[in-house]
Write a protein that binds this DNA or RNA. Structure first.
Lengths: 199, 199
DNA sequence: TATCATACGAACAGTTCTGTTCGATTAAGC
DNA sequence: GCTTAATCGAACAGAACTGTTCGTATGATA
């Protein structure tokens, strides 16, 4: 049992170090040497748990997929019961991320750039995006948008744009701008669905 | 004179090859060896014209800055004389880019991920974005937006989002979605400025 | 024809990176 | 106390990458 605990600790320390480093410097900007130094494990230990660096990257992305979508969901739910409010609330997750540790984008922006077309990493990244979009489309539908997938796509664009620009400019107003834009877009889509409200 | 021509040809061939390769595989995903193989020049020739790989990357980004902004401008002007139409027309540049050679994002999304904070490449990238935003803000002001910088920022988010998502998903509908979203956002901003039009 | 800049090509140095190997060590379970 | 699984550490192999060097070739100009 305790052996199990030790084993888990090693893997977790590796993945925690990898997450920090990959997040800051990108997938290709971090070598396994840096990961082992930061995590404090021996290189041979790392290669016991991960066959290649690619495997490590893939596992890192899998974990990040879940935690990142969980954060988006949590931010949405914190915005209240109305689906329209939740769609706007999603952006509070970006605000939080920015305030917590500067802003280096969600790791999937990096992954979209730094992975080859045929890699497992890219497959995971695409799946992450699709899951996110599916969820945003559900929310959009609950909010009463006539073109739920279209609204979801536009909100997704704002999220990705904020992550990319935020990383580059290190300017938190982009996140606020994204949130405001989302509000406008949701308003536009619902106005079409419920013509009574505006026109 | 002819020596000048030859010299220019070498540099241009190097930069053309670099542009293609960097665009497809990212800055860190391309080695100088690949650049010289593709351009057909000797390695020593490359290092005559560029002191380091970093210098090559910087020059590549400088040229791309100009050509990319020129394309955005051309697409905007092709949309007609009205500033509001031009703001929407900007996205036709993305449509064109997608149709021409698949879609791998503008190189500055890659550069935002793959450059270190203190690099010249990042400085050029930031400057590129600022110039683009300044221009978008001018257009927004001409269109009569009350918060021109705010509108420009939101349009910029859509552009960057489309570039990032488009690269990942290879789906051209994201560009159409971005364009539609821009239309909505411009409408919202102008509605505030000119209350007579909607409410 | 002599000169000068440009480019070539091929070898080489030095670093960094991924991945391997293996004997020594630690600690928990029986 | 013995066994077993996990870890360590340190060396090593092999590849890839950046950057250098230098003798040679080419071609335009004077």
């Amino acid at each position: 049992m305790v052996t199990r605990v030790r084993k888990t600790k090693s893997v977790d320390r590796i993945l925690a170090a990898a997450a920090e480093l990959f997040y800051l410097h990108g997938l290709r900007g971090v070598g396994v040497e840096q990961v082992i130094e930061r995590s404090g494990v021996a290189k041979s230990t790392l290669y016991v748990h991960f066959r290649t660096k690619e495997d490590l990257v893939a596992e890192y992305l899998r974990r990040t997929d879940e935690s990142w979508r969980a954060r988006l969901r949590a931010a949405a739910e914190a915005a209240g019961p109305a689906a329209a409010d939740q769609l706007v609330g999603v952006f509070d997750a970006l605000v939080d991320a920015f305030d917590r540790h500067g802003f280096f984008g969600c790791p999937f922006i990096s992954a979209a750039v730094e992975t080859t077309l045929d890699s497992e990493a890219r497959a995971i990244t695409i799946q992450h995006t699709e899951r996110r979009q599916e969820w945003l489309a559900e929310l959009s539908e609950q909010a009463g948008a006539s073109d739920a997938r279209g609204l979801a796509q536009q909100i997704g664009l704002l999220i990705d744009g904020a992550l990319a620009s935020g990383r580059l400019l290190q300017d938190r107003t982009v996140v606020d701008g994204a949130k405001a834009a989302a509000g406008h877009l949701i308003g536009s889509h619902l106005a079409v669905a419920q013509p009574t409200s505006v026109i």
